[in-house]
């Protein structure tokens, strides 16, 4: 495990990547809002943002892969949330809590591998744990107990599928391409990135 302290370059990379994903998040918000508008009259508007939920975990998993030091996922999510808040995010300070929980979710499987395994298996596990923790948090925030159980199950399943695609598959694909392109200073061995 790389126990070196986070450097200025690491923090800058986390912050800059958070802003890049801020652009992607904005696209997801537009798409989610459009979907929510369509689904609202049927009472299914709460599902509108769920297909894009995995996008919110992408920054954390990508920086964890690129920097490979403990706590990077959590710090990235918190930095991304702070940037969102300062740019006028509607959920303000609660985004910081959501971000911390999502960061813990993304980071957890990497902790078990001592930050030495960056395979698809770990990326998928990361997507699952981020989904479970964020689902518990949004369940508390939006009071899922007041909703029909079928809606709650639909929220979880759609969010999980989204996370598996965006966080588990797409993020890992981008990182592997970066690694192959020779951009990363600390190049990984084949055993570290494949199952």
């Amino acid at each position: 495990m790389n126990r070196n302290k986070l450097t200025l370059r690491d923090y800058l990379l986390m912050a800059l990547i958070s802003v890049v994903f801020g652009v992607v998040y904005l696209l997801a918000v537009y798409a989610g809002t459009a979907l929510t508008t369509i689904l609202t009259p049927m009472g299914l508007g709460v599902l509108g943002y769920e297909p894009f939920y995995g996008i919110w975990y992408m920054a954390a998993i990508i920086t964890t892969y690129l920097i490979r030091k403990p706590l990077v996922g959590i710090v990235t999510e918190v930095i991304a949330a702070l940037i969102e808040v300062l740019l006028g995010n509607m959920f303000g300070v609660m985004v910081l809590v959501s971000a911390f929980i999502q960061g813990v979710g993304v980071e957890l499987p990497f902790t078990f591998t001592k930050y030495e395994n960056y395979s698809y298996k770990v990326a998928m596990a990361s997507a699952v744990s981020a989904t479970v923790l964020s689902f518990l948090w949004t369940g508390f925030r939006s009071n899922y107990l007041a909703m029909d159980w079928r809606i709650v199950v639909a929220i979880f399943v759609i969010r999980l599928l989204s996370a598996l695609f965006f966080t588990g598959y797409l993020s890992k694909l981008i990182c592997d391409k970066l690694d192959k392109a020779g951009i990363l200073a600390n190049h990984l061995n084949t055993s570290e990135v494949s199952d």
């Binding site: 918000v29 809002t33 929510t36 508008t37 689904l39 609202t40 009259p41 049927m42 009472g43 299914l44 508007g45 709460v46 509108g48 006028g88 509607m90 939006s142 107990l145 007041a146 909703m147 029909d148 159980w149 079928r150 809606i151």
Partner: peptide, 29 residues
């Protein structure tokens, strides 16, 4: 101007939760 721009998606999300809570209530609720 910024406030009214932010309020549009919030109002929409709030309305969507109203419809979900109204049409798909849990027995406990």
């Amino acid at each position: 101007a910024k406030l009214s721009k932010i309020m549009i998606p919030i109002a929409l999300i709030s309305i969507s939760y109203f419809f979900t809570g109204w049409l798909f209530s849990s027995e406990q609720a």
